[in-house]
């Protein structure tokens, strides 16, 4: 490291700062979009599983195992290279006109994280003793009201710690989208590095941004957990 003097102005000014900011924006969009879609998909999966239909149960189990036992990068590459091939031509054209990298990365991320999130929800539901359900039905509540007032509030609290873990997991793994050319934070820091050779500075800045955001997610989780824990008493 002899003779290497740190200079952050090359990274944090002018054109490069713009790159960095746009990278942050794309990461944030990717994260927020994929998170919402993943949660939605996870709920769909858990509802499917609980229908009691054999094929639905089998489908959900397979879905979860496949998405948990194949590397996310491979899933992203599959969505990017293979999935468009399987689509009809108009859909392919539409994708190409609408930032296909971003959309496909978002889909890959949410389909994968949905598998993890549905497992988190399932473990939460499973931990509620059946007597809770029976007690609620005995009071005269129907299936939906029982879910709404008795089961789900308890399950949500139990599912929370793993859900927060998976939120963090999703956030960190938005960086994998760079492999198919999504201009998110990691991609942009590589670009700036290429342009300035300020390796340390640019990676330090990007790492700091990731770290601060990760810590914010962890802290939010801890805060929410504490509040939920207080309510439980």
């Amino acid at each position: 490291m002899m003779g290497y003097s740190l200079d952050f102005t090359a990274v944090l000014a002018g054109e490069h700062l713009k790159w960095l900011l746009s990278g942050i924006q794309v990461t944030a969009e990717l994260f927020a979009g994929a998170w919402a879609l993943a949660l939605l998909l996870a709920v769909v999966l858990i509802v499917l599983r609980n229908t009691g239909l054999r094929p639905a149960h089998w489908f959900v189990t397979t879905y979860v195992e496949v998405h948990q036992n194949v590397p996310l990068l491979v899933q992203v590459l599959f969505w990017y290279f293979a999935v468009p091939e399987l689509l009809p031509a108009p859909a392919q054209i539409w994708l190409n006109e609408h930032n296909s990298e971003f959309i496909l990365a978002l889909l890959a991320l949410s389909f994968c994280i949905a598998a993890y999130m549905s497992e988190a929800l399932r473990s939460g539901l499973r931990a509620i003793p059946p007597t809770q359900y029976e007690a609620s039905r005995a009071l005269g509540f129907g299936y939906l009201s029982t879910m709404r007032y008795v089961i789900l509030p308890q399950a949500a609290r139990l599912s929370l710690p793993p859900l927060i873990n998976y939120t963090l997991l999703l956030f960190k793994n938005t960086s994998i989208a760079m492999a198919i050319g999504v201009h998110e934070l990691t991609y942009q820091s590589r670009q700036i590095e290429n342009d300035t050779f300020r390796t340390f500075e640019v990676f330090a800045v990007a790492t700091a941004i990731y770290l601060l955001s990760s810590f914010a997610i962890m802290a939010l989780g801890a805060l929410y957990e504490r509040r939920a824990g207080l309510q439980a008493r």
């Binding site: 760079m178 390796t199 340390f200 990676f203 990007a206 810590f215």
Partner: peptide, 15 residues
Amino acid sequence: RGTPFLMVIFWSYFA
């Protein structure tokens, strides 16, 4: 735990 694995790879690859 708060850093993406890709970032760790880049640190060791470039830095």
